[in-house]
């Protein structure tokens, strides 16, 4: 039997969860022996294989139409979807934006920021994705495993991925469950 394939991607988050993933140090070699690491933000392949992967991992909440698209592609192409980190699980820090309208947020970011010169303008190009309310991943696509934490520790991430690699569903509880 071939090794299970794992793909990951990064949505509205800070990349801290992927940093935490790398923080597992030499265990990443052990992990690479157990699974076939496919597309991730830190490997060359940028999209999960069309023929599908076994485990998809998403970091970050969903805050625009591109995030929505990426989440839907990942869901379609993976058997088990893991929401990794507080942003993917709850919406996290980016979701603070939901307390304002999108217009207010854009204006603050592109026009009112202290470092913006007098020509500050909100990007309007049709090719660009549209910002939306920030949502947890499970509000857009069904999620199988929730791994909260800001970020989840390397131990937690290693536990989840190694359990999945060995064909078991990880139990997120006790010392494997943290929120902050």
């Amino acid at each position: 039997m071939s090794k299970p394939k794992v793909a990951s991607d990064w949505l509205a988050g800070c990349a801290g969860c992927h940093m935490s993933l790398l923080d597992m140090d030499e265990r990443i070699i052990q992990l690479a022996e157990m699974v076939d690491i496919r597309s991730t933000p830190i490997t060359d392949l940028k999209e999960p294989d069309e023929e599908g992967v076994d485990v998809g991992v998403l970091e970050g909440g969903i805050n625009n139409t591109t995030n929505e698209h990426v989440a839907k592609v990942m869901r379609k192409r993976c058997k088990i979807l893991v929401a990794m980190g507080d942003c993917a699980v709850f919406g996290g820090v980016p979701a603070m934006r939901n307390l304002f309208t999108i217009e207010e947020a854009l204006k603050r970011a592109y026009v009112e920021t202290e470092s913006t010169d007098s020509e500050g303008m909100i990007p309007q190009d049709e090719e660009l994705c549209r910002p939306t309310k920030v949502r947890a991943v499970h509000e857009v696509v069904p999620v199988d495993i929730f791994l909260p934490g800001c970020p989840p520790s390397a131990d937690q991430i290693f536990y989840v991925l190694s359990e999945l690699a060995q064909g078991r569903i990880p139990e997120i509880k006790g010392d494997k469950l943290q929120w902050h």
């Binding site: 699980v89 939901n98 309310k133």
Partner: peptide, 18 residues
């Protein structure tokens, strides 16, 4: 938070209403 962790809450099935 401690109560949520004690009850094994991994996520919020109902999101906040903002």
């Amino acid at each position: 938070q401690n109560a949520a962790l004690e009850h094994g809450m991994t996520h919020w099935p109902m999101q906040p209403n903002w």
